[in-house]
Amino acid sequence: MSARDEILANIRRSLRVGGNETIRRQIATERLERAPKGLVPSRGQLPAEERLALFKLQAEAALATVTEVDSSADVPQSIATFLRDHNLPATLRMGSDLRLTAMPWNDTSLEIAHGPSQGSDLNAVSHAFGGVAETGTLVLVSGPENPSTLNFLPDNHIIIVSAKDVAGDYETVWNKVRFAFGKSGMPRTVNWITGPSRSGDIEQTMLLGAHGPRRLHIVVVRD
């Protein structure tokens, strides 16, 4: 008997089932198909303005910085200012996401690079798929235009999120993922990011910038 079959047989013996009971199969299949929503905390169900305020509050509590701009045309200037204010070099790496490449980067003196990171970039920018207000979490999906390495290798990570994409709870974002990619079409990687990288492994003292970005800066676009 293969290891697979033996493990399944052992589980069934322990559970005292045969594995082909119709009702049991139906229960599992239905749960997978319907994916019933569980308990969503009330703070995850706020109206739009309060939701956005909570998102910012929670992201800052997780030690990210947050800035707001009126439209996507304002993003490059806002990022250039952020980098200058923190004495960071005027360089920026990004994927080929149209929402990013369509922005007026030429209005700034930023030196732009495209494609995945090889590990030596100081600054990178990504566009979020969505945000979650209840914990100030950003949701990013991988794809041809959105390399995952940009989320982890650079020292300073900037994430752009549209205000309208900030949901109250995780469940709303999962439904959007299913709508965008199909029920069984998960992107290779979905990253939830809540603040910059950190470690408490030395004497339980929290230090930022363990392996991932030392800084996480969020630009919320309200258009």
Binding site: R188, T189, W192, T194, S197
Partner: peptide
């Protein structure tokens, strides 16, 4: 923490 910094969902190899 209310949420850990990185929660990552991986499905298969790179497309």
């Amino acid at each position: 923490q209310e949420m850990s910094v990185y929660t990552t969902f991986s499905t298969g190899p790179r497309r």
